[in-house]
Nucleic acid binder design. Sequence first.
RNA 1: GCCGGGGUAGCUCAGGGGUAGAGCAGCUGAUUCGUAAUCAGCAGGUCGUGAGUUCAAAUCUCAUCCCCGGCUCCA
Length: 645
Amino acid sequence: MSQVNITLPDGSIRTFPSAVKGIEIAQSISEGLARNALAIEVNGEIWDLSRSIQQDAAIRIFTWNDKGGKYTFWHSSAHLLAEALEALYPGVKFGIGPPIENGFYYDVDLGDRAFGEEDLLAVEKKMAELAKANNAFQRSEVSKADAIGYFTQKQDPYKVELLNDLADGSITFYKQGNFTDLCRGPHIPHTGLIKAIKLTNVAGAYWRGNEKNKMLTRIYGITFPKQKELEEYIHLLEEAKKRDHRKLGKELELFAFSEKVGMGLPLWLPKGTILRERLEQFMRKAQVKAGYDPVVTPHIGGKQLYVTSGHYEKYGKDSFQPIHTPDEGEQFLLKPMNCPHHCEIYKVKPRSYKDLPIRLAEFGTVYRYEQSGELHGLTRVRGFTQDDAHIFCRPDQVKEEFVKVIDLVLFVFKSLGFENYTAQVSLRDPDNKSKYIGADELWERAEREIQEAADERGLKTVAVKGEAAFYGPKLDFMVKDALGRSWQLGTIQVDYNLPDRFELEYIGSDNQRHRPVMIHRAPFGSMERFVAVLIEHCAGNFPLWLAPEQIAVLPISEKFNDYAKQVLDTLKDRDIRGFLDDRDEKIGRKIRDAEVSKVPYMLIVGEKEAAEGKVAVRKHGEGDKGALLLSEFASQYASDFAMPS
RNA sequence: GCCGGGGUAGCUCAGGGGUAGAGCAGCUGAUUCGUAAUCAGCAGGUCGUGAGUUCAAAUCUCAUCCCCGGCUCCA
């Protein structure tokens, strides 16, 4: 056998006399690496460490510190979970068990057996026991016929179904202990590396993600090479739960829900309303600057409006049903979108090419019927307000306008400190074009323009197929919540279809009629979802300009209530929001309550301050900042209180 | 909508066939205080809702509503 040249990530080359295993390469580098190695990347493909490399290759050894290492570890953990389940529940049928961003899951069919949270502990225990056995993950190549034979005999119909879609010659099995699974791999060397195991939750999941299929039981878990890392992870989760906007929204009295009003219909409480209105003012100001014209339209629209737009055909059945008038038999729909109304505004008079672009903006409240199981705090609701606008422009203006909107979205994100977002180009599902309206050529053009605009602003994008709106592709800005769930906030969409359907026109310089192009855009997305993500982002400690209450004036005792009142009034005159805590409580108590309710500044006033016209400034989370003249405080902190622009 | 879990005072939670509990919040009184909880007293619940089993149901059964975790969906 000829020698093998292995190129390491640093570019150096090691030569081995014959085929070499990943683990041997690791050993040749260092004992420590060999001990921590989980998998190896061979020419871009991840392999088991025990697999022989026959030819020259560029490699990279994965440990727990690499994403690839974690994925391999969790993938193997999923197999361990399956092994435990088979040991505890003979006859269990297996679906798929992949690694995910934080751990892994396995979808199983437990027959009629009910499986609840309590059962997780028993499975967890079994997994730990099996892990200790240090069973190696053994790879074997199998023919398709043998593979089908194995799972048919084992009565694992889901595996057989998966096998039917695989090509003969590329099928591998992995075995650890008594458990054999159909699997492409790779896996970690042996189960003993899995030291800490936590099964986190059970959920239903449709087989192959199709709601027409049987619902399997999905068991989620996470594992670590060290117990301490599991403890840290659990601690992290607990911290994340404290930021949950549903919890903070209740504690800080920002919003509430009522069964009588209806599920998914948020009630904005006074403090939440201040927050929301401040965001609206911020956006209004930015939009005036960017050349938008505010408009207002009703909450309902005639059915024909949505028949024209195509929304009725697409979503009519899955929407709130039409409202009927008692006498004339008219039908109205709660508006699920603002665009049709805005199209009608465009049409109120003939438009010239010189008028374009026309940018119509509205904080438009829309109502969408969401399945009950989908509702989630403020992030997924049935009634919400979009910071919507529609830009009607000439085809030659699309890219320039799109770029301007990207700038606006980035300005908003920057002003609010959102740094960890993903810009997602949402494209059509090429395998299911019937879900969409409009000509291929226009879709391709729109997709190209979005990508070009994003590139022009140096935006790093990921393209995701099947995520487009039914009338056009989108550029979506995705942000994660405290628990790692991804939500779409800002969105920008190019639309050649609605202008067609509404027969929008403008007179060009050639004196001919032309179709304008529409850009739908919402930098926040919706006020509800944006506020939800904002709450989690800052853990309820809002930027000063947004805080519902910016200052709390805390008199040391009743004797200084009058002075405290003067302080508050002076600051209110300067548009600073605050309140006076004149309860018969000790200062420690007043401070504690203000700290807990996350008021950014506490102004403590006692004998000294009253005599000298000062305030003792205490900053939330930081403590005493010393005394200042009231006028000094107002001017010194003025810029912090102001809205960014 | 589907699978699993849950709903007890305004909030956070205990109790699990035999008179409904705590802490915090609230109210009243005392206290007038210098940087994260002053003390005392009082009040507060048809145990989500509706049926059923039982001498007796917060507790057991069923249905239903809402909430939580996922799945599917998301104009």
